[in-house]
């Protein structure tokens, strides 16, 4: 309004004939537009202009009502269905994954069982082999020992035989020696029986 007034004053001072045009010219310069009148009928701030309220309400009711129907009958069931389907699919995939994991676990368990069995079997084979080897070596040793013992007894028997034979020879030698000694000493003859008795008596000492 200040601009308008100033412009109007200027117009009147410069050229009086244009004075009646001033309000119209001033309006062009009203950049703030707050007091913008005459452009449209009611002259109120457009959003508060009640002349169009009925039409706004009717068209809002029509358009928003249609939008609500579209949303509740078409769009929301559709998006809900998509999300549901995806949710089911994910759950199904998870089930499948857990089933496969169970299978893998079972396979691992059976493999480990097999491995344990094989190990046990290996152990038992090794044990039997060891036992066999041991018993065989024991038997061999026993056989060797028995043979050795037999040889020892045979040797001992032979030694005893040789000994007894030697001892028997010792008696005969002693008798001969005694006979010879007696002959030399006393020059007489001594009977064999006497000599033998004497040797026996001395051998008994």
């Amino acid at each position: 309004m200040f601009v308008t007034a100033a412009y109007a004053q200027q117009s009147t001072t410069t050229e009086g004939a244009e004075a009646h045009d001033a309000p119209a010219a001033g309006e062009v310069h009203t950049e703030t537009g707050v007091a913008h009148e005459g452009e449209h009928g009611s002259g109120v701030f457009p959003p508060f202009d009640s002349t169009h309220f009925a039409s706004q309400l009717l068209w809002l009711a029509i358009t928003f009502g249609l939008f609500y129907l579209l949303m509740s009958k078409v769009i929301i069931p559709r998006i809900g269905g998509i999300l549901e389907k995806r949710h089911d699919r994910i759950a199904q995939d998870l089930d499948e994954a857990s089933r496969l994991k169970g299978e893998a676990d079972a396979a691992i368990a059976s493999y480990e069982q097999e491995l344990a069995n094989a190990k046990a079997k290996g152990h038992s084979i090794a044990d039997t082999a060891r036992e066999e080897a041991k018993s065989k070596s024991n038997a061999d040793r026993a056989a060797v020992e028995a043979e050795l013992a037999k040889k020892i007894t045979a040797a001992e028997a032979r030694i005893a035989e040789i000994k007894s034979k030697a001892l028997a020879d010792v008696g005969a030698i002693a008798e001969e020696t005694a006979t010879a000694v007696v002959k030399q000493l006393i020059g007489g003859d001594v009977t064999k029986t006497e000599i033998a008795a004497a040797v026996k008596a001395s051998a008994g000492n």
Binding site: S55, W59, I62, T63, F67, L70
Partner: peptide, 14 residues
């Protein structure tokens, strides 16, 4: 109840 530019943009929004 005129069809106005506001009504037009309501339709456009929907």
């Amino acid at each position: 109840f005129s069809f106005t530019n506001a009504s037009l943009f309501m339709v456009a929004t929907v």
